Amino acid sequence: MELRQVYLDTVAQILEVCGVLAIVAGTAFALCEAVRNLVRHREGEKIFDLFRTRLAKSILIGVEFLIAADIVGTVTIDPTTESLGKLAMIVLIRTFLSFTLEVEIEGRWPWQRHRNRHKDD
């Protein structure tokens, strides 16, 4: 294996680890924050909503890292037609997941964000 491939494979693995760490760390922080709010006797529904939002954001960041890892790993290391087809399916699925998580976090469609900003001005 040539040095370039070793380097790019390492970059892809680092991106994968970053994605997993973002999800794990975000989940841990969201859980800690929820427990802290429960101990302080805050409103349960607000605690749950905040937990879901924090968790969704950490998953979203993790998915973005994982998509980057897939792109680096597939396009630069093994650019066959079959692997590019698999990459396209993975990116499509993860993009759909990212889109639905963003809708969950924001509570509206992405194209509605700009419309609401102009109403606030």
Rank of each mutant, 00 (worst) to 15 (best):
residue 51 F to I: 00
residue 113 R to T: 06
residue 50 L to M: 09
residue 18 C to Q: 03
residue 1 M to P: 01
residue 102 E to S: 13
residue 38 L to W: 03
residue 67 I to H: 00
residue 71 I to A: 03
residue 121 D to A: 14
residue 49 D to K: 12
residue 70 D to G: 12
residue 50 L to E: 08
residue 40 R to P: 04
residue 27 T to M: 14
residue 29 F to N: 10
residue 83 S to Q: 08
residue 3 L to M: 04
residue 74 T to M: 04
residue 117 R to C: 06
residue 7 Y to G: 01
residue 51 F to L: 00
residue 5 Q to D: 04
residue 46 K to V: 05
residue 8 L to N: 05
residue 25 A to E: 11
residue 84 L to I: 11
residue 28 A to S: 07
residue 79 P to L: 02
residue 95 T to M: 14
residue 40 R to I: 03
residue 58 S to F: 02
residue 3 L to V: 04
residue 112 Q to I: 05
residue 49 D to P: 03
residue 12 A to D: 01
residue 26 G to W: 03
residue 28 A to Q: 07
residue 49 D to Q: 12
residue 61 I to N: 05
residue 53 T to I: 04
residue 8 L to V: 05
residue 64 E to A: 15
residue 25 A to M: 14
residue 10 T to C: 05
residue 76 T to A: 14
residue 29 F to M: 13
residue 92 L to D: 13
residue 89 M to K: 14
residue 114 H to T: 10
residue 30 A to G: 05
residue 68 A to P: 10
residue 57 K to P: 00
residue 109 W to Y: 09
residue 106 E to V: 04
residue 55 L to N: 03
residue 59 I to A: 08
residue 86 K to Y: 09
residue 103 V to D: 00
residue 87 L to C: 09
residue 92 L to V: 14
residue 57 K to R: 06
residue 82 E to W: 08
residue 47 I to L: 04
residue 39 V to L: 03
residue 57 K to N: 00
residue 78 D to S: 11
residue 63 V to Q: 06
residue 90 I to R: 15
residue 56 A to C: 06
residue 22 A to S: 13
residue 51 F to W: 00
residue 72 V to Q: 00
residue 115 R to T: 14
residue 71 I to K: 02
residue 39 V to P: 01
residue 116 N to T: 12
residue 64 E to F: 14
residue 61 I to T: 11
residue 79 P to N: 08
residue 15 L to I: 01
residue 53 T to P: 02
residue 100 T to Q: 14
residue 94 R to A: 12
residue 64 E to W: 13
residue 102 E to C: 12
residue 119 K to H: 11
residue 68 A to N: 09
residue 77 I to S: 00
residue 83 S to L: 01
residue 10 T to W: 05
residue 10 T to S: 10
residue 117 R to S: 08
residue 9 D to N: 09
residue 98 S to E: 14
residue 9 D to T: 10
residue 43 E to I: 04
